[in-house]
Every structure is written in C-alpha cells, then in structure tokens.
C-alpha cells in the first residue's frame, strides 16, 4: 500500500467542518475571488458585491495572519462550548473569521496584532467513523 493510497483512505474518513476548508497534507482555506476586482468570498456569489463582476476563480488563502479583532466569549447560546476566542484574522489582506486555538483564552495571552497560523483539529467522529475537521488559528510565535 503506497503513501498515496493511505492518504486517500485517511481523507475518505474525514470531512471538513465547512467546504472552504480544504483538507489533505497541507490543509488550507480557499475562497472565490472576483476576477475583476479581487474581492473574496467563502461562499458562492452570482455577482460580486463590490464591482458586479460575474466571473470568479478559486484561490488559496494565506495560512498566516495577524489578529485584528477578537473577543473572548464566555457566554454563548446553548450547546456552544465556552470559553472560546473569536477572532478576525488578516491573512495577507483577506479577512478570515476563526477561533484562536491552542493557547489560553485570556487577554494576557491573546492580543491585537498577534501573529497566528492556520491549524486544524478533529472536532468529533460520527456514527460512521468519519471525523469532522475544524480549523482555527494558533499562535505563530
């Protein structure tokens, strides 16, 4: 059994939390980019909200970025585990919403301007043994 087949097997048992998270050896986020003005969207658009262009191409969002806004959420809707750090990350000019993970959710640790990078984790396994893979941003040092 070659490495390629093992990889396919692993992939078959995983599913991303959202379609714009591309799994594989180097998980990354992808976006639909307007070919005329460069505006990026994580879901589908019929026309660009910025320039009305109707052609889009798929692009890879940079994995590293800077926290430009965050909130440490300690009170959320039922079923939402707290605390967690909600953040807006500037990934090379593309704003991404995601949690800051793999660090303590405290204002002493998380700060504006913090450098982070994309990280994935298993958020659960269903009755068929399929793992759902979530993403977040961890400190990049």
């Amino acid at each position: 059994m070659g490495e390629g087949f093992a990889s396919v097997l692993r992939m078959a048992n995983q599913i991303p939390l959202v379609e714009y998270l591309e799994l594989g050896d180097q998980p990354h986020l992808k976006a639909h980019e307007c070919t005329s003005c460069g505006a990026r969207y994580f879901d589908r658009r019929n026309a660009c909200a910025g320039c009305s262009g109707t052609e889009f191409t798929q692009v890879v969002v940079p994995d590293e970025g800077v926290v430009k806004a965050f909130s440490i959420v300690t009170f959320a809707a039922p079923g939402v585990p707290v605390p967690f750090v909600s953040a807006i990350v500037d990934c090379g000019g593309t704003s991404v919403r995601g949690n800051v993970i793999n660090c303590e959710p405290s204002p002493e640790v998380v700060h504006l301007g913090m450098r982070v990078r994309l990280a994935t984790y298993v958020l659960g396994t269903d009755d068929n043994g399929v793992e759902a893979i979530g993403f977040g941003y961890e400190p990049a040092n």
Partner: peptide
Amino acid sequence: YGAVTNTDGRIGAASMPA
C-alpha cells in the same frame, strides 16, 4: 458553507456581544 455542524463558537462567534 457546506457546514457539517453549527459553526457558532467553532468559526468565531455569531452572538451580538461578541
């Protein structure tokens, strides 16, 4: 977004205070 479960709390927060 083709989400397999609720994203509030997993991909940032949807609540107004946050």
